[in-house]
């Protein structure tokens, strides 16, 4: 068993107010954070350096994602629009307007040609980055409630919603699979092998679903997650499940037997976001207390 990132190595401070999202970039050398102060910040988490600030959002930044080639950022937030940024210049290339309400999550697809956003307006929208069109390519509005989180694979769009469903839109097959968990889902995360999806439900439970069958494989409990949008993720080896808690604790469960392997106080307040390094045993956590912490094994 490789070491779990339990040692705090850096604290990234700069955000004023709550940090709502923290994301590693594709290779894990940098990370992006977004928060209530309407800014997106680019950091080197390993050295603890703040590199750049991206300002344009009119409201809080709820989610941010960077392309695999590190050239573009997409972000979303309370101002109902998506911003498509150029990383180096820090300029907004395009703004995608269309969501009727706050946008909760955003993701690039593999080729960074499409941005998929999940909104409080119960819809998923896919936006084209290649053309100059600012109209969504497609609007998926089968959800019954706010869509909280979205994940993309090569062929699928997976989204979790407060209506308790995790919906998989298979583009190749042209079908929609809806897994009703019975509890509001506020975050979904794909396992690294792509076979499972981890859903954080608002009954303070993380649920691991088998993607192919829709079977519930395991439930992870112990933390508090009742009213905040909080991230969860799996480690690189898919051996452990990591999730924050509303009391500032960080929980690490064993994937198979759902036992709490580790539990430690990471922040003084709600842990809003957890992002795991794509290769190393390293993770960043963001919290309402305004700090972003870097953890290493």
């Amino acid at each position: 068993m490789s070491g779990l990132p339990k040692k705090e190595t850096n604290v990234l401070k700069g955000h004023e107010g709550a940090v709502l999202t923290a994301r590693f970039n594709g290779d894990g050398n940098y990370c992006l954070t977004g928060g209530k102060d309407r800014t997106i910040r680019l950091w080197n988490p390993h050295r603890g350096i703040h590199i750049k600030t991206y300002k344009a959002h009119a409201r809080e930044v709820r989610d941010v994602h960077v392309t695999s080639d590190n050239s573009k950022i997409c972000s979303c937030g309370g101002d109902r629009q998506l911003f498509y940024w150029d990383v180096s210049s820090g300029r907004v290339i395009r703004k995608f307007r269309g969501h009727d309400s706050e946008v909760n999550a955003v993701k690039f697809n593999e080729y960074a040609s499409v941005v998929v956003s999940a909104g409080y307006d119960r819809s998923l929208r896919a936006w084209d980055c290649r053309s100059h069109s600012i109209e969504p390519i497609q609007i998926i509005d089968t959800f019954m409630d706010s869509v909280m989180s979205v994940c993309l694979t090569k062929t699928e769009i997976i989204a979790g919603s407060v209506d308790g469903t995790v919906r998989t839109f298979d583009i190749r097959m042209g079908r929609e699979l809806s897994d009703d968990l019975g509890q509001p889902v506020n975050c979904i995360s794909l396992s690294n092998d792509g076979n499972c999806v981890l859903a954080s439900c608002l009954d303070s439970t993380l649920r691991l679903l088998d993607r192919t069958t829709g079977e519930l494989l395991q439930e992870y409990k112990g933390h508090t997650c009742k009213s905040f949008k909080m991230d969860c993720c799996l480690t690189n080896s898919d051996a452990h499940v990591i999730g924050g808690s509303e009391d500032g604790y960080l929980f690490i469960w064993d994937l198979v037997d759902a036992s709490v392997v580790s539990k430690f106080r990471a922040h003084s307040s709600v842990v809003t976001s957890v992002s795991y390094h794509p290769k190393d045993d390293c993770m960043i956590t963001a919290s309402v207390d305004g700090s972003v912490r870097v953890w290493k094994a």
Partner: peptide
């Protein structure tokens, strides 16, 4: 729970194109 349901869903052709897939 979880309850699985399957529906037909039609991806936009442009979406398929952007995902480099053949429109089903």
């Amino acid at each position: 729970f979880p309850k699985r349901e399957e529906f037909q869903w039609r991806p936009a052709s442009l979406l398929c194109k952007r995902f480099d897939l053949i429109d089903p």
